[in-house]
Deep mutational scan, measured.
Amino acid sequence: DHDVVPEDKFQETLHLKEKEGCPQAFHALLSWLLTQDSTAILDFWRVLFKDYNLERYGRLQPILDSFPKDVDLSQPRKGRKPPAVPKALVPPPRLPTKRKASEEARAAAPAALTPRGTASPGSQLKAKPPKKPESSAEQQRLPLGNGIQTMSASVQRAVAMSSGDVPGARGAVEGILIQQVFESGGSKKCIQVGGEFYTPSKFEDSGSGKNKARSSSGPKPLVRAKGAQGAAPGGGEARLGQQGSVPAPLALPSDPQLHQKNEDECAVCRDGGELICCDGCPRAFHLACLSPPLREIPSGTWRCSSCLQATVQEVQPRAEEPRPQEPPVETPLPPGLRSAGEEVRGPPGEPLAGMDTTLVYKHLPAPPSAAPLPGLDSSALHPLLCVGPEGQQNLAPGARCGVCGDGTDVLRCTHCAAAFHWRCHFPAGTSRPGTGLRCRSCSGDVTPAPVEGVLAPSPARLAPGPAKDDTASHEPALHRDDLESLLSEHTFDGILQWAIQSMARPAAPFPS
């Protein structure tokens, strides 16, 4: 592969990997390779389809078979030569091979799209000592099968071997295949498990690692696999990028399955594409389908809103127990993405979901129960707010008499603000006073009005108090039968009158 990737590009890729991570280095090298001529790309395919690569990765054979028959990708048995050289000459001794072996032994695996480039050397060096003999053996194999790289107009793939297949390693990572398949204008990513390549439709969760975000852009890794992070704060999961590491605690105790298979379609829109997988259930989501939507993949363990709600429900009964003089119970939860139609709101002032922060849900004790107040519409209280300059209440639009249902020339009671006709409430011909108009209920007259088809109010509507207090003497005590009587009149003013009279009014101040 030294004929494909020059030394300066190799060093530039290593520097970019240390600065921005393996995914960015892979993407940059792939983009550079696509700008080369067809001879360089053909050399790339020839390096990929060597015999030892085909033996190690069985899924490469179907890719090789898909090439046109007129494309010669065979390799000479006596060494490598550029395709432009007409004579089959043995190339001179390859010093770059020693360079590659020494550099890969030092860096474990470079971040390139060629056999030198995919593992994360920093994480491997940190986690190597417990498994040094086995990992050293794996390093000797890295130059042979560490990076199976493929690129063409139909298929483009980048393979990364790992030393996680050490025997006896619980939940060992089998390997990473960062794979971009450009077929019919689409893009897919796969993962390699035990020599087999699994596409998103049959993606397997190998051991402790999972394909957290099938994305090839942005600074985030394709698999949430930063070796420096180790395990999740809650004892979460091992990262795919942690090559040759000792077994780590796999999943939280509440995880239903340690080796679950995540779905390959969004649980909201039932469509495929780039998904984020939940650590607590097999569901996966688009970032845009979450509520609120996320802009980037959160670091650490992530769970959907259903799993978060289940966790909150487990903690909430203990938080609601009476604990005198104790601060509110704080339950730190990872930043969760909410699927459509589901929402768990945190306290005000918290950062938005999706940031690399930890939301704190506070379970406050329930407030003391209070008697429910009568629910009145805002339009129902409008007549009470229509007060004239002299303190006389004006008529609201649409006000109707509670007896006849007519809204023409209605009066407004100064005591309960109900609309009424003087002739309907006082049919006996009582003279109307000039000021202080009161309806039949507030004036103490319980004589029913002779209106055909309208039920008369119940005599129990009024329960006047002592006459010594004029204001308190007109406080009506309405009961269920009074409400039914008012409802039978089918008037809004009657219902409003009952609601206003049912509310307690402050006692009249004593004259000074």
Score class of each variant (00 low, 15 high):
312 V>P: 11
326 E>Y: 11
402 G>I: 04
304 C>F: 08
367 P>T: 08
397 P>L: 12
275 L>D: 07
269 C>G: 05
451 V>G: 12
295 R>F: 08
257 Q>W: 11
299 S>Q: 05
352 L>T: 08
501 Q>S: 04
408 T>H: 11
426 F>H: 10
509 P>I: 11
421 H>M: 01
451 V>L: 04
303 R>T: 08
353 A>D: 07
321 E>W: 12
498 W>C: 02
307 C>D: 15
354 G>P: 03
275 L>I: 08
254 S>R: 10
371 A>T: 10
285 F>N: 14
349 G>V: 13
379 S>H: 13
340 A>S: 09
249 P>V: 14
433 P>I: 13
449 A>D: 14
299 S>P: 05
364 L>R: 09
499 A>Q: 02
388 G>E: 15
434 G>I: 07
286 H>F: 04
379 S>V: 12
261 K>Y: 05
254 S>Y: 12
415 H>P: 02
354 G>F: 15
288 A>N: 11
276 I>P: 11
498 W>K: 02
358 T>L: 11
255 D>F: 15
391 G>D: 10
300 G>T: 05
431 S>C: 12
297 I>E: 04
379 S>I: 08
299 S>W: 14
266 C>L: 06
427 P>G: 08
268 V>L: 10
325 Q>W: 13
266 C>P: 05
350 E>C: 12
351 P>Q: 10
427 P>M: 12
458 S>F: 11
290 L>Y: 04
415 H>A: 06
314 E>D: 13
415 H>L: 11
262 N>V: 11
369 S>I: 07
321 E>C: 12
477 A>G: 09
251 A>M: 09
259 H>A: 07
329 V>R: 12
331 T>W: 15
437 L>M: 06
301 T>Y: 12
304 C>R: 12
294 L>C: 09
281 C>R: 08
278 C>Q: 07
473 S>H: 11
296 E>F: 15
300 G>P: 05
351 P>V: 08
309 Q>P: 07
355 M>S: 07
247 P>W: 00
476 P>L: 07
347 P>T: 15
363 H>N: 11
455 L>C: 06
247 P>K: 09
395 L>A: 11
396 A>C: 07
308 L>D: 08
419 A>E: 15
420 F>Y: 03
361 Y>N: 09
243 Q>K: 09
332 P>H: 05
327 P>L: 11
290 L>Q: 14
309 Q>H: 09
401 C>F: 03
458 S>D: 07
362 K>W: 03
474 H>N: 13
248 A>V: 08
419 A>R: 08
409 D>T: 03
482 D>K: 00
253 P>K: 04
303 R>N: 10
347 P>L: 08
444 G>M: 10
435 T>V: 10
336 G>F: 15
369 S>Q: 05
445 D>W: 05
447 T>K: 09
418 A>V: 04
468 K>H: 04
393 Q>P: 11
286 H>M: 09
413 C>G: 02
368 P>G: 12
415 H>R: 06
472 A>I: 11
410 V>K: 02
483 L>Q: 03
482 D>S: 04
476 P>Q: 11
257 Q>L: 06
424 C>A: 02
421 H>D: 03
399 A>M: 02
301 T>I: 09
360 V>M: 10
321 E>S: 08
385 L>Y: 14
353 A>Q: 06
427 P>Y: 04
459 P>H: 05
303 R>E: 06
433 P>Y: 13
277 C>G: 07
313 Q>K: 08
375 G>S: 10
